[in-house]
Design a protein around this nucleic acid. Structure first.
Lengths: 217, 217
DNA sequence: CGGCATCCGTGACGATACTG
DNA sequence: CAGTATCGTCACGGATGCCG
């Protein structure tokens, strides 16, 4: 009757000797991968996370952050005064989830064709599909992307891809200005940068190798 | 008070204009990706799925299969008599989730180092991590894999990777015999086939290009 | 017997209120 | 600002029953 599960792997593990099931044990809970997506854009405070994840309740967010810290995905760090607040950031293990989110984004990109007026949007959410395309160029550097919804940057090259909110710390090698629709199409591979530029939907600046590669794509 | 959600995208959508969030709307529910993993190994009947997914309740399995059909991930087909039963199989869209499961499996593979006695196992669950390694060889063909837990095959080459339970329909190009532990290590990249053969933990047969490539890895 | 539908207890989730 | 507390609701897991 009682059948007390003697301290299962997690609250509710699949208990399968399978790599994918093990991964889902760790990041399969609701909201977890979206929190990772947020933190891939850089360290975030609790309130920022709560603001950028509309719908998540405060207790669930707190619970997930604790779970993720226990799983070794994130660390909690106190900022130096005067902004004495906690920020959450990904560990190396957490950042290693980028390919998972990229694969999900690639698969889910077709669903961006319909956009509901109730949908939340943040600029850096467009980074994931774009990252795959830019990484495919085989060049290296930082691309700054300006959308109406905001601004983010993408860092590619050497298999060490990353993205972040706002401007990059270093000077970008190229600047991409376009609207969300064009950005989605490029991310889907339905529009090339060259076509977008020709149609006046995309502007590219940056005369280095990266800028040239972008215009040639 | 009522706050009736006016027919959201799904039961509980994230309502975010983000490719990854859209993907999680479709496959983020508990058990869904594991059902996909099962169906990637070939068509399955309801009872088979229920038997190979210990812990899933009957109603949740039925509900997921309906959701997945509605999302266009699966189709339901009636087998010809006398085995007149329904089988579920993936659509093209469903099979396109393979990269997602591969990314998850790659990330989750380190967690296979600890194996609980309560963990369920199926032979073809080892296919996912292995697929990545074999696809990296750059050769093409079918590898039959024999474990103590059972037998499965993987098909690589030309970007059209797949795997299946039991023997392949066509004659395999190579046969790999090893134990689960060695299989996991190869999938993690912690053991090469050549090392495994030298240590007597792996046997490779098949004299074609694929067999040679395997032994050379 | 395979393929579910129904019922029920528990736990996860979402919204709001409240606190250090 | 960063959570904790409370509460209603719904999803999940387990067992059982029905129906072809």
């Amino acid at each position: 009757m009682g059948r007390t599960p003697p301290a299962a792997r997690s609250r509710r593990s699949y208990d399968q000797y399978c790599a994918a099931a093990r991964a889902l044990d760790a990041v399969g809970d609701r909201w977890t991968l979206l929190i990772v997506r947020e933190l891939l854009a850089g360290p975030r405070r609790y309130t920022d996370l709560h603001a950028d994840l509309p719908g998540v309740s405060t207790d669930v967010l707190a619970s997930r952050l604790k779970d993720m810290e226990r799983e070794g995905l994130t660390t909690r760090r106190r900022l130096p005064p005067p902004s004495a607040a906690y920020v959450y950031e990904l560990t190396e293990r957490g950042r290693a989830l980028l390919p998972v989110l990229q694969a999900l984004a690639t698969w889910g990109a077709p669903a961006l064709q319909e956009r509901a007026p109730t949908d939340a949007v943040r600029a850096h959410w467009f980074a994931l599909p774009l990252l795959r395309v830019l990484a495919g160029l085989g060049v290296e550097g930082v691309v700054q992307v300006r959308l109406d919804e905001g601004e983010f940057h993408v860092r590619v090259g050497g298999g060490a891809e990353s993205y972040g909110d706002g401007p990059a710390a270093e000077a970008p090698d190229a600047l991409l200005t376009l609207d969300a629709e064009a950005c989605v199409e490029v991310g889907r591979g339905a529009l090339t940068v060259a076509e977008g530029v020709r149609a006046g939907r995309i502007e590219v600046s940056g005369e280095g190798v990266l800028g040239k590669a972008l215009r040639a794509y």
